[in-house]
Design a protein around this nucleic acid. Structure first.
Lengths: 239, 239
DNA sequence: CGCAAGAGTTGAACATGTTCAAGAATAAGG
DNA sequence: CCTTATTCTTGAACATGTTCAACTCTTGCG
């Protein structure tokens, strides 16, 4: 699993990004230990003490590198995202229809995330707090979020779908929101292998595809402009 | 503020619902103490010890009545919902257009919830965990959820909007989902008085209204059936 | 080398949600 | 009233995320 540390928790000011080789190694050791324990014992059992033990460092040292358990989890989060991008690439290079591409990308996420489902509930809890750096809407997650949105831009751009320019520009962001919705459903989905989530994706994607193709109907056009305007108003201006 | 304890945390089996008058009183004392501290000192400062102290009982006793801090918060949750229903009634008896009714109900929620905004982040965190009884999707919250959905049914039924039968049946549930979306936005909204959330509601409602009226256009009709089918597939069958 | 400044490391201590064995108060049955 | 079962109450004890003052090691510089 590739490990992009997109969202870092660097204890040093940004102006001095270097870190000694040994420190970097210790840092990675801690991450690896945490991964191992999260996987084998779950979130609750993987206490900071256990992680520190497993990594062969003191508790205090773990906190020197990661200012909270949440920040430690961030590596997990990034790992899933990186794996998702990797896996989605297969779909993005082969499929041409919008529906296939979107379904492929969404199902790729479900596939990638499956091993973490049990863990995800606990993770999700932390991510839900607005002030948490793990929140998908937080400033800290911006890089991760933009990468995910970009993935959806590729879904659109590489597809055969015809859309109004304004809609095409905003659509990837809306699709990212859709993906957040899928994640929400997935987290609550207790069916085996998250069967119901896959069903949701497979059933929803054609409907979305159909809806998007309807946007070219004259009577619907005005509505689309309204939606785009709404998205633009709401979107970026933090605060 | 009315206090409907819709979702109770009864330590005794459901077959023996009675509780001594004194016990009931102690229970209420604890709730009141918790409310006071949540309001005055916020979620973090309102420790179980502080709450027990304020209520004049021991920590263990507080846990006898509420099996976790989350369950104690439930009263808060219910209180907001009850107040919302009360406040929404004004709109529901006067407004006749669908847009006005929906906007009125959603804005009523923002009004009612405003004092709790700071607190809400912490609350939301707990509610986000799927296994939490506080989750709006949990079995424990079913009564509360159904009440909220019913509120939206009143919005639809009392309005002048014309809709296909199937859509009309599912719409209240979709509107409840919309409300959850508004709540999500609201939680993350740091503008003063949650100005941006109000803006979102005011701008989104006319768009929704317009979209619903478009559902009668021939070409759109099939799409609506698909959406209804999708909602029905996904909705109830827990697990 | 010698030394100062900073990086890296430590574990005891703290705060808080939660549990639990034990006891006190109350209710039920005779 | 006495006995017994049940409800109610208690606070010490526990687990765990987090902090912090102190310590050791490394680096840079004369």
């Amino acid at each position: 699993m590739a490990r992009l540390s997109i969202v870092t928790d660097n204890p040093r000011p940004a102006s001095r990004p270097e870190r000694s080789a040994k420190a970097e190694q210790t840092r990675q050791t801690i991450i690896d230990a945490a991964m191992r324990l999260f996987r084998t014992h779950g979130y609750d059992k993987a206490t900071m003490r256990a992680i520190a033990d497993e990594a062969g460092v003191s508790i205090g040292n773990a906190y020197y590198y990661f200012s909270s358990k949440e920040h430690l989890i961030q590596a997990y989060y990034d790992g899933i995202n990186a794996e998702h991008a990797e896996r989605a690439a297969a779909t993005l290079t082969t499929a041409t229809s919008f529906a296939d591409r979107l379904a492929g990308v969404l199902l790729a996420w479900v596939d990638v995330a499956e091993p973490y489902h049990e863990f995800a509930g606990k993770f999700f809890k932390n991510a839900a707090e607005p002030s948490s750096p793990l929140s998908p809407f937080s400033d800290d997650s911006e890089a991760t979020r933009l990468a995910a949105i970009d993935l959806h831009r590729q879904v659109v751009d590489g597809s055969d779908i015809k859309l109004a320019k304004a809609l095409r520009a905003e659509l990837p962001e809306l699709m990212w929101l859709l993906q957040m919705g899928v994640v929400l459903f997935w987290v609550h989905d207790t069916s085996d292998g998250q069967r119901r989530t896959r069903q949701l994706v497979e059933q929803a994607v054609p409907v979305i595809d159909r809806a998007l193709r309807l946007t070219r109907i004259p009577g619907v056009r005005g509505l689309v402009d309204d939606v785009v305007g709404l998205v633009r108003t709401i979107k970026p201006t933090a605060g």
